[in-house]
Design a protein around this nucleic acid. Structure first.
Lengths: 300, 300
DNA sequence: CTGTTAGCGCATTCAC
DNA sequence: GTGAATGCGCTAACAG
């Protein structure tokens, strides 16, 4: 130990990885970086894993399936000890790859319906159901939906929650009130809004798949001389930090981002420790509606 | 080659790194993740490096010097081929470490005043000078400054640009109009605003170190029944995407984020290729003022 | 309990 | 040209 100090020896992690087939590295696949929801998740995850001496390798897949698979291979090559998958909904070839290579993995914000890997998620369908019901309970009966890319299971589930709530309140689903976009950023919400708000028969409320879409929608409403929430109520989803700071404050569904992250870390860690004995599980965490200024009751 | 196909052989990158002392990995040190400015930078950087078959290892230092050094050591251990330093202003022990370990490095958004490493940056002093001058030219003569942590060289430079502009317009610097905060997020701008806007002798404008601070300031103004920009003009800095979408649109200084990133990548790449022959250089890129709704002229 | 050795999977070098 | 040796820095297994 004295000699270690004297020569300031420090073990070479690459050589160690080579023989150990371990790296104390955890890969995290994320769909993008420009989103408070994701950065909060990663921040918490890093903190949790760091406690156990793991370093996080953040992989931004930019929502590209090929990049996703490239990263998975890279991570395998690097002998990562585990992977947190939050980039997209589980795909068969990914599951197969992870299974074959015996890489511990956890899906976060997504549910592996094959149950081959653990997942932590919220009930996206129920969450959007609650959002829609909140509007219905406040007297809205004509509610538009600004959707996102339907390649995401979560988005599909959210839409079905919306439809379910309408059905439960005896309102027929009107396809002309559904606006599809290829992404869920400000621009998409703005474009959908510009189309919708120019209609004579505009609704009294709109449900958005994300807070960013909601911000775009609010901008579009204002550009059409509509006041939010007086003329139109706008509901967000995610509760990113800007949702509270925006004017008006955005009424939205909060995902328990911190809990999602902590549990993902813990599940992955115990999977790494317990190896074959690990019992996979699917956890659904509670969401919460954040009532702020972008929605109001309508008098019938 | 036939056999390679048949056995679907794929070279082991860890073993390769061990013997080559290279990894085709580039480390990127960032101060946080929750910022469009940073995520845009990283996105572009990844794209540029990916073209040359390099993978990016994103390290979130959370503005902690120790974490920063830990990552630097980790990166050295992993035999990264180079490092992009955008987490904080260059510190002597980092420079020494990089120099000693012969790790190619580039500072982005920061300038290495020792000139031992290359840098790409904007002129933060001139940028804030221009922002302040814009307000002065629009008739404002009492302008507050919402500053951030002075541990950042950029922030110090921005403050000095503000002071310089005032001086050039024959206005004495009034320390009571300078509000210091430990971070530059929405909350800090809000707190500074709540203090300032309750004063009887409030100014007609405020320069903020970041767009997030500006958003907080706008919120505070509104909570004090002040209209932006009618009662008070608020100037941002960075031009993050929300600056345009916010209401009112935030007049701000745009950093050429894409160019910053592309040039950082190119400089690092040529440094890696040219080895000892590489000539270090310091590049300063032009900024731009984005005129939007949060500032207006004042009639004297 | 200390000392030696084999081998992780590659690139490099030298011999053929 | 092809083939066999050496070593990158470590861990694990084994011997003394």
């Amino acid at each position: 130990m004295k000699v270690v100090e004297e020569l300031s020896f420090n073990p070479n992690s690459v050589a160690r990885s080579l023989v150990m087939r371990k790296s104390r590295l955890i890969g995290v696949l994320i769909p993008s970086m420009d989103n408070k929801f994701i950065s909060d998740f990663v921040n918490t995850l890093e903190k949790e894993l760091f406690k156990c001496n793991y370093t996080t390798l953040v992989c931004n897949t930019k929502r590209d399936d090929d990049i996703e698979m490239d990263f998975l291979r890279l991570l395998k090559d690097k002998y990562v000890d585990g992977v947190v998958m939050m980039a997209s909904n589980p795909k068969p070839h990914q599951i197969e790859f992870l299974e074959k290579m015996a890489i511990p993995a956890v899906f976060a914000g997504h549910t592996d319906s094959t149950k081959q890997f653990s997942s932590v998620n919220i009930d996206h369908c129920q969450a959007m159901y609650d959002a829609t019901r909140y509007l219905l309970q406040n007297g809205h009966c004509k509610i538009a939906f600004f959707g996102g890319p339907d390649i995401y299971q979560q988005i599909v589930e959210r839409l079905s929650g919306y439809k379910q709530a309408l059905a439960d309140y005896g309102i027929e689903y009107d396809e002309s009130l559904f606006y599809y976009a290829h992404d869920y950023d400000i621009e998409n919400g703005y474009e959908s809004g510009m189309k919708l708000f120019q209609r004579k028969d505009r609704p009294t409320a709109v449900c958005c798949v994300s807070d960013m879409v909601a911000i775009g929608a609010i901008r579009a409403a204002e550009d059409n001389r509509l006041s939010v929430p007086e003329d139109i109520s706008i509901m967000g989803f995610d509760d990113i930090s800007i949702a509270k700071a925006y004017r008006p404050g955005i009424t939205t569904i909060r995902q328990p981002i911190h809990e999602l992250s902590v549990q993902a870390a813990q599940m992955l860690l115990s999977q790494i420790q317990q190896k074959e004995n690990y019992v996979r599980e699917t956890r659904i965490l509670p969401h919460e509606i954040m009532v702020r200024g972008s929605c109001m009751a309508v008098s019938n």
